[in-house]
């Protein structure tokens, strides 16, 4: 991308020695590592964007969102500048490093900013498609980057468009709306339910803002059971966005709705990402359990 688009500039803080080594070697004049100074880095990236560049700012998600929120709001979003925020370790990735490094509110923070686009790719391949698509996009983008090496989500390679909800499985009884690493889990659950004779839909909501209200409203209003799945606080993330749509009228007459995510707390545990996923009840078996419970409640309703 950088080879084709001469305006692309890499701006890192102080993460990951060897990051984009090829970029650094081939295009040293567009490769900057500016130190542990997020407020400065964002302002500087805004200045570059004001001069026609397309800076990709790379650092750890918590520091890229919380530390320099004012700079992102005023310097980047207000002027709708083409800055790309590349947030490493979105969600619970840095579990062993503790709460300072857990980005569980990043989507809420970024969603609240006017002009910001929020992208949460489901896997590494989708990340690549998203970055390539961003070259043609006007305005700032927040990319939430996962750990890497997560299982790939089976989906059409060519079907990525910023702002589109990607329907991977058509729903009948129940629909999962998920993003990031939860998409793969949603598919696993859907496959399990299918073997039990239940048709579960899966929407990969890689773009959480702007929301694909057209597609979502259509599915939300025709599917009786909806569960949102996110590796994020239940406050202000994907679930909240869907809840708002439902509250505004996009709902099935007998609609039931559950949000599965991280409760309103600082995770007081370490371990690995998977340990925290388990701790917060976001494993496949938990989703299956909630789904079955919901389907039986629905039966009572419709009797």
């Amino acid at each position: 991308m950088a080879k084709e688009n001469l305006d692309v500039v890499y701006v890192g803080s102080d993460v990951g020695i060897g990051t984009l080594k090829e970029f650094q070697e081939e295009m040293p004049d567009r490769y900057f590592v500016e130190g542990v100074a997020e407020a400065y880095v964002i302002g500087m990236a805004a200045g570059l964007a004001m001069s026609g560049k397309m800076p990709f700012v790379n650092t750890i998600a918590t520091f890229l969102t919380r530390r320099c929120y004012d700079q992102i709001a005023i310097d980047v979003c207000m002027g709708n500048h083409d800055v790309r925020l590349y947030a490493n370790g979105g969600g619970l990735v840095y579990a062993p490093l503790g709460p300072t490094h857990l980005a569980t509110d990043d989507i809420a923070l970024m969603r609240a900013l006017p002009n910001m686009t929020v992208i949460v790719p489901a896997d590494a391949d989708e990340m690549e498609r998203a970055v390539l698509a961003s070259g043609q996009h006007k305005g700032p983008i927040y990319f939430r980057v996962a750990r890497g090496g997560d299982p790939l989500v089976p989906q059409d390679d060519h079907d990525f468009k910023i702002g589109n909800a990607n329907v991977l499985r058509e729903p009948k009884e129940i629909l999962f709306v998920a993003a990031g690493i939860m998409v793969h889990r949603a598919i696993e659950v859907a496959d399990q339910l299918k073997s039990e004779g239940i048709q579960a839909g899966v929407i990969n909501l890689h773009t959480i803002k702007p929301l694909d209200t057209k597609t979502l409203s259509c599915y939300l209003s025709t599917t009786p059971n909806v569960i949102t799945l996110e590796e994020h606080s239940i406050i202000g993330g994907l679930g909240s966005a869907i809840a708002q749509l439902i509250a505004e009228g996009a709902r099935h007459p007998q609609g039931l709705f559950r949000m599965m995510g991280i409760p309103d707390c600082f995770p007081g545990k370490y371990g690995r990402q998977g340990d925290l996923i388990k701790y917060f009840g976001l494993e496949v078996k938990n989703v299956l359990e909630v789904s079955r419970q919901m389907l039986s409640e629905q039966k009572v309703l419709t009797v």
Partner: peptide, 18 residues
């Protein structure tokens, strides 16, 4: 766009660098 203090110099560095 200024008013929130401490923003001008980081932006200025970006402009000068560009």
């Amino acid at each position: 766009s200024t008013g929130s203090l401490g923003h001008g110099l980081p932006i200025g560095v970006g402009l000068a660098l560009a």
